[in-house]
Design a protein around this nucleic acid. Structure first.
Length: 677
DNA sequence: TTAACTGGAAAA
DNA sequence: TTTCCAGTTAAC
């Protein structure tokens, strides 16, 4: 029978302290009579329960055995209303406000302080903003514990490599006052910028250099991008600029062990640069000096779990709270980003007209919408002559990207003749048909519109835009025999293609990056993206087109098949994302839509939504739209207030949640600033 | 999950 | 009035 390994007892004798430290946290308090800690015997604990009225700290006695390790930020188990729940110690204190005996902490889950003070404060601010609870936010912010990973020693911190000012200036050349922005970063300052990237920009590299400048100023950086494909690109760029020992990658699909390992490397201050998807916005970077969000208009940045925070809001709040610089970049510009510039909160970093002209030539082809309506056959020519020629010419020197709309758009109604989206006269919501016989009704406020007439052209007919099945790849294969045609979209997404001539057909968001950029980019059927039932139809359409055109090589060309009169198409041709964001902002203001107004939805059982509305003491000047039936048997209302009443609306909604959870009423889902309606 | 509380009914 | 029990509530 084999005895114990020979070196085991020896190790215990050599490192008694280490072994004890690992055993201690798992000890459970057996009796309530165990003596309490001498210093600060009270722990303020935030319990992990989803009830709004319990979103406050509860005081527990700290047993003497946990006196040292039960520091702020550690996970604990506590007895709460008869059962063991998880919680975080937020504070230690010498006294309590609670009259009555304090229950002792039941167990120290781990002595690792995983909830850093700045993140606890951020969670409170986000919970208030989004009418949710801190524990909901913390569930998004702090990854689950992985004990085995915790015991392993994390990576050692490495000194930052020297900052190459000249290289940074070179890659950022052409983007307006970027040199000043970088200089300010390197000096430890906190400049804030909205960055309108010129087509053909290798943006991950530019971000990596901004991060390098921040590190040079002695601070850390946090980069949030929409998806794993973009994470990989930024990861590669950071490795090129900083080496591989400065940053970590935080993504949801990394698995619990790796995720916790990389999170710990950040929480322990061993790594000061983070790149990841939306949850990475909560990474506890030590001495945060810069937050970066790329393509903030992408709906992947909106968290789908309560309280539905948006990565842009999270990062901008952090920039203010932690005194960090902010960089909001993209080929397109969201209305919110435009507001940051307009309000003076951020500067604009953009290429000059001359620089843009040297980057790409965008042309529009295809008959206008009115001509198409007169001659439906014109639509059959999905690839008009000019686009065909552009593809042929570009194939001589490199790959060509052909972007085609995804099928399966939710159809909203539009004017049959001019295709202006049909909107509600009362609240400007989208119109939809409940049944073929009924008149169209507003999806937001439920108003029916008998005898609708188009405000643009006076036509009385409505149509649901039909999405044709995409056989683009086959069509192009026949049109260009002998040319390699590749596709990317749906669940078969190509990350990149090489510089060899090929036609790459992709749906929006699935466009592969081409080595050196595409010789040409062709956008087909752009009118389809404009008929969607969506609060941000035009903004979203332009964002997708700009992202496709952004992949062009410097000096390349782009061809847009669509209506040259459409404002979004014009903004693309002129490459004027800032102007378009401004125009959208004006329209939203006139229509009382976000971000000019603050808007919240309440969704749930019709009865529950009704009495949530009764409980709501909304600020002066609020409007209630609906309720309207929503999804399977549920109903939804939209509450709208002027922008400056936003905090009051959030507070009122939070009070509704507190009262409802305290009275054990059916839960309703409250979403502040939903990205879509 | 459970101790503490509530209110109603039975016992005195 | 007291006691007992079932159901409800708060939660350290």
């Amino acid at each position: 029978m084999p005895g114990p390994k020979p070196d085991e007892p020896g190790e215990q004798e050599l490192l008694p302290g280490l072994v004890r430290a690992e055993v201690r946290p798992t000890r459970t308090v057996k009796s309530a009579s165990e003596s309490v800690a001498e210093v600060d015997p009270v722990a303020r604990v935030l319990v992990d329960v989803p009830l709004a009225h319990l979103d406050r700290t509860f005081d527990y006695a700290v047993p003497a055995s946990m006196g040292v390790d039960a520091r702020p930020g550690v996970r604990v188990k506590v007895r709460f209303a008869g059962r063991d729940v998880d919680g975080f110690v937020l504070e230690r204190s010498s006294a309590t406000d609670h009259d009555g005996a304090l229950t002792p902490l039941r167990r120290l889950v781990s002595p690792e302080p995983v909830l850093l003070p700045q993140i606890a404060a951020l969670a409170a601010e986000l919970a208030a903003r989004y009418a949710g609870t801190r524990s909901d936010v913390l569930r998004l912010a702090v990854p689950g514990r992985h004990a085995a990973t915790e015991k392993k020693d994390s990576v050692a911190s490495a000194p930052a490599p020297p900052y190459d000012v000249a290289a940074a200036a070179a890659v950022w050349a052409g983007h307006g006052p970027a040199a000043a922005f970088l200089g300010h970063l390197a000096d430890g300052g906190s400049p804030r910028a909205v960055w309108s990237a010129a087509p053909g920009t290798e943006w991950p590299l530019l971000i990596a250099h901004a991060v390098a400048a921040t590190l040079d100023g002695g601070r850390g950086a946090l980069v949030v991008v929409p998806d794993g494909k973009d994470v990989a690109r930024v990861d590669a760029a950071l490795s090129v600029v900083l080496g591989s020992d400065q940053h970590v990658v935080l993504t949801a699909d990394a698995g619990p062990a790796r995720r916790y390992r990389d999170f710990l490397a950040v929480a322990r201050g061993r790594r000061r640069v983070v790149v990841g998807t939306r949850a990475a916005a909560f990474a506890p970077v030590a001495g945060l000096g810069l937050v970066v969000i790329w393509d903030d208009g992408d709906d992947l940045h909106a968290e789908p779990r309560a309280p539905y925070p948006h990565a842009r809001e999270t990062l901008l709040l952090r920039a203010e709270r932690e005194g960090a610089a902010a960089l909001v970049g993209g080929f397109a510009m969201s209305v919110e980003a435009g507001q940051l510039v307009r309000s003076g909160w951020a500067h604009l970093l953009a290429a000059s007209r001359a620089e843009l002209r040297s980057r790409v030539t965008v042309s529009v082809t295809g008959a206008g919408e009115h001509a198409l309506a007169r001659d439906p056959l014109a639509r059959a020519a999905r690839v008009p002559t000019e686009a065909h020629h552009a593809i042929r010419d570009a194939l001589a020197s490199g790959p060509v990207l052909v972007s085609t709309p995804r099928s399966g758009y939710a159809a909203a109604l539009a004017c049959e003749r001019c295709r202006t989206p049909a909107r509600c006269r009362v609240c400007t919501g989208p119109l939809a048909l409940g049944s073929a016989a009924a008149p169209p009704a507003c999806r937001w406020c439920g108003t029916t519109h008998e005898g609708w007439a188009c405000p643009e052209c006076g036509h009385r007919g409505l149509r649901a835009p039909v999405v044709g099945e995409s056989r683009t790849a086959e069509e192009l294969g026949r049109a260009f025999p002998g040319t390699l045609v590749r596709t990317s979209g749906g669940d078969r997404v190509l990350a990149e293609v090489d510089a060899e001539p090929a036609i790459v057909v992709a749906t929006p968001g699935a466009e592969p990056v081409a080595t050196g950029g595409y010789a040409a980019v062709v956008l087909l059927d752009t009118w389809l993206a404009l008929g969607v039932a969506h609060l941000r139809v035009e903004e979203e359409a332009l964002r997708r087109w700009a992202n496709a055109v952004g992949l062009v090589r410097p000096g390349g060309r782009a061809v847009v098949v669509g209506d040259p009169a459409h404002p979004a198409v014009q903004a693309l041709v002129r490459w004027d994302p800032a102007g378009f964001a401004d125009r959208e902002a004006t329209q939203r203001r006139e229509a009382h839509l976000p971000p000019a107004s603050r808007l919240a939805t309440i969704t749930g059982e019709p009865g529950a939504v009704d009495d949530a509305l009764t409980l709501l003491v909304a600020p002066a000047g609020h409007e209630v739209l609906g309720p309207v039936p929503f999804g399977d048997g549920e109903s939804r209302v939209v509450v709208r207030v002027p922008r400056n009443r936003g905090p009051a609306l959030s507070a009122a909604l939070l009070e509704v949640q507190r009262v409802r959870s305290a009275r054990k009423l059916d839960a309703v889902r409250i979403q502040v600033d939903p990205p879509t309606l």
